[in-house]
Nucleic acid binder design. Structure first.
Lengths: 168, 168
DNA sequence: AGACGCGTGTTATAGTGTTTCACCTGAATT
DNA sequence: AATTCAGGTGAAACACTATAACACGCGTCT
């Protein structure tokens, strides 16, 4: 529990349609447990995010929604996103103005994100060692933590491999 | 050097006009050393940011600029901000879409920020222990770090004191 | 003078997110 | 069954954040 990988980088063996189904059924269970409604729109937005399996922009979601749902407008998407964020089913990546599915919505957490600049892949951590260190550092300055935004940009393993092959 | 506070929370003893002057003259030295031009607009934007001594929005800066400079437009501000960011004279706070002065522009760094939700005060750290831990965690996943966005929201010491007095 | 780089002026546009009010539906209440 | 109420949605407009594109001006180097 000290160092937890919530969502790893996708491997070659990743079964994506299963991964999407799993995320959706877990979301349904979570919402049922909490007595909140995973309506059609909300479920659809969550599905669109998971299908992409990378940070998705609100207006990209809107474009998708419009294909099947005339009358979809910015509030349609943002309301769904607000709900999904509140329920911990997705996270917002501040540095990208984008949204990713949460790999473990069963308990509320803020997460720490590794974002590949080359392929946009995102891994999510919920690492107590990181959180604890930040809390300790803050405390020494008399600051009490309520929220953390930890977004690390760089190169994921797969892209590092490609670069080594391709580059000089 | 392991744990450095670049910009602490302001104390009661804080001499703000001196702090602004100091920041500006340091900026001038830095720009001169690097052979880049701290033009009037750029210097003015930096000054406006330091005067506020908290995260400032681009369009707030624009409003200020317009008071003294008809013809100021969004690009006027964003170009100045881009320059100041590139020279490490300011940082961007992603979670606020806002900009703060950098407490130590003499060497490039990314910083870690403590942001008070009550008074908007910001402290800047450049803490090697935090960076090292994040690098180590990333490395275990085969990820190489290029950039970090660390923004911690919570309550600063001064506001914690006020709350204890005021609240129940 | 001519050519170039850089900073700026100006207009327009793109991208991101919110406000507001109306309507509808379904469950609880009377 | 009618009423009430809350939550979710439809629709239009708007606010905020940022960039594109092109023109101009001014120094410097040749």
């Amino acid at each position: 529990m000290a160092s937890q990988i919530v969502t790893p980088f996708r491997s070659a063996a990743h079964d994506h349609s299963h991964c999407v189904d799993e995320a959706l059924s877990q979301a349904e269970r979570n919402c049922a447990d909490r007595g909140v409604r995973l309506t059609h729109i909300r479920r659809r937005v969550l599905e669109l995010i998971w299908r992409r399996h990378e940070p998705v922009k609100a207006y990209d979601l809107l474009d998708q929604l419009r294909l099947e749902h005339r009358g979809a407008a910015p509030p349609t998407v943002y309301r769904a996103l607000d709900f999904l964020l509140a329920e911990g089913l997705i996270h917002r990546i501040e540095s990208l103005n984008a949204y990713v599915g949460c790999g473990d919505p069963s308990h509320p957490h803020l997460g720490q994100f590794l974002i590949c600049e080359h392929c946009n892949a995102v891994a999510e951590l919920d690492d107590a060692e990181i959180s604890d260190l930040l809390h300790r550092k803050a405390r020494t300055m008399g600051f009490s933590v309520n929220w953390q935004t930890i977004e690390i940009n760089g190169t994921c393993p797969a892209c590092a491999k490609k670069q080594t092959k391709g580059g000089g």
